[in-house]
Amino acid sequence: MDSTQLLKGVLDLAVLAVLRDEDGYGYDIVRRLRAAGLDEIGDASVYGTLRRLFQAGSLTTYVVPSEEGPHRKYYALNKAGRSQLELSRKVWSEFSGSMNSLLEGKVAA
């Protein structure tokens, strides 16, 4: 089974989750996701997701000048983003709970 297919459905949730505690710029977010074990996540997928969440009004951005290297555009969760994260988290835990039960053969007959 190809994990990139699974990833597509939960990209939003993953990106929102890594921004929950700390704001981040694009490449930093990619790195955090990879560090969390999502090795196969693509740069374009993360950037595209960030743009979409921003357009949907779940994220805010701000630019931080840097003395070494380029300015960085940080993304941050706003109120709408946090409630979206909360909602998606519930959906995900129910879904994954069901899937785990199914796979472990504990389904109530």
């Binding site: 710029y25 694009g26 490449y27 930093d28 740069d43 950037y47 595209g48 743009r51 357009q55 951005t61 290297g69 380029p70 300015h71 960085r72 555009k73």
Partner: peptide
């Protein structure tokens, strides 16, 4: 909407 920030992003990627 999609491409506006791409130069920023790629510059960040390239810098690291």
């Amino acid at each position: 909407d999609l491409l506006d920030d791409l130069p920023y992003h790629l510059t960040e990627v390239l810098a690291e």
